[in-house]
Design a protein around this nucleic acid. Structure first.
Lengths: 215, 215
DNA sequence: CTCGGCGCTGTGAACGCGCTGAGGACGCCG
DNA sequence: CGGCGTCCTCAGCGCGTTCACAGCGCCGAG
């Protein structure tokens, strides 16, 4: 998406970028550009600062306020250091002053596109139990359950192996450190705690073998 | 992380960035910088091109080849358009030519740090807390809160990850520089300071795991 | 039916995590 | 040089967490 009111520059950019394999749409005014960015599903936007209707600063500010996070490369004839800083602090990702080198524009655009949003680590889910490792949050049927450190570590281990039978020794080894001296009874105790907090039948006892998380 | 062989510039950068609340380490040669970036867990790197041992181009190229994706702001005396394009195409995220304006460097660094995050608001807001990185100002329910550099850095880090549990070790790594020798107790102390200034229940303690900013 | 053993749970004690106030080291400014 | 603000260390304390223990219920084997 190119937003630029100077027709010749806009056309040149469009042609050049298309030659590089990008699909390019052009808007000539601030409001048009804002609208296109909102609904167009573009990968990035090249945005002039001096625009009829709405300045580039304002366009990017509104986009960010509306939770649109597409990469924005700002273009301006103003080369004052504070103009540049202002543009970036409004939410633009890069800032280029006119006149600019086409080669540089391309390289900066590529650098912007390279940075996709990092994917969030998946949450573990078994039945109506959910465990979010990043937020360290456990919910049961959308109700939050508060767990102590040990309880959490135990549930985490079990939820990564749903349906499998896991022996007390294995749990001691992985959830408790230096298991050599601790009695297997701790495991029974903590399974008891978890059952109380999560529901009686979530954790099955396999007599003589270990425990299993019901799927 | 600042990698710059000119000692005076490196020291000036470190001081300036520390005053902004960043935790800053410095390396003077290419290999040193590469190693630090590999193992240091830094949020971003400012990288000179002309370096003893290994050029900035080569440093960033190797980092990317090894799947390290930390944001890199490249610094160079060369202002040729192809130098700039080369730097960016090696994997740098931004490129600044010397002499540069300190204000612009800061704004670009902020933009860079924003880019990695899944959302990139220019102003961070959680509940009635607002933090403006450009103005370095924090308000709580529209009332200004004055924070020291360390307090600010800590809050900044937490507000970029609202709702997530963050361990004391992680905070030490990112908010304090060269943390190896400092005890985790500092974190507790500064969380205490923040609670006093922001309200008691904004920062939850997750015993045995870390802290969480209430959403 | 009886008996042995595995697993469950309530009690209570020790531990150690995290909070806080006091105070020292350091740098900055008048 | 003294005052001030920031940063950080340290020690004490409160309380949640962790775990040992013992008694009991339940399951399965003979």
């Amino acid at each position: 998406m190119v937003v630029e009111d100077e027709a010749r520059l806009a056309a040149a950019l469009q042609r050049g970028l298309q030659a590089e394999g990008f699909a390019v749409d052009v808007a000539a005014t601030g409001p048009e550009g804002l609208d296109a960015a909102r609904h167009g599903g573009y990968d990035a936007m090249i945005l002039d600062v001096m625009l009829p209707g709405l300045s580039g600063y304002e366009v990017v500010r509104r986009l960010r306020a509306e939770q649109h996070w597409l990469p924005v490369l700002m273009l301006s004839a103003k080369d004052g250091e504070y103009d540049q800083a202002d543009g970036l602090d409004c939410g633009a990702d890069d800032y280029l002053t006119k006149p600019f080198s086409y080669v540089v524009l391309l390289a900066r655009l590529r650098a912007l596109l390279r940075r996709g949003a990092p994917e969030r680590p998946a949450v573990l889910a078994v039945g109506d139990l959910r465990l979010d490792p990043a937020r360290r949050r456990v919910t049961r049927a959308d109700a939050e359950v508060t767990l102590t450190a040990r309880e959490y570590a135990l549930l985490d281990y079990l939820m990564r192996r749903p349906g499998q039978v896991i022996s007390k020794i294995e749990l001691l080894d992985h959830v408790w450190d230096a298991s050599l001296e601790t009695a297997p009874n701790v495991v029974e105790v903590y399974v008891g705690y978890l059952r109380r907090k999560l529901g009686r039948d979530r954790l099955e006892t396999i007599r003589g073998a270990g425990y299993r998380l019901a799927t």
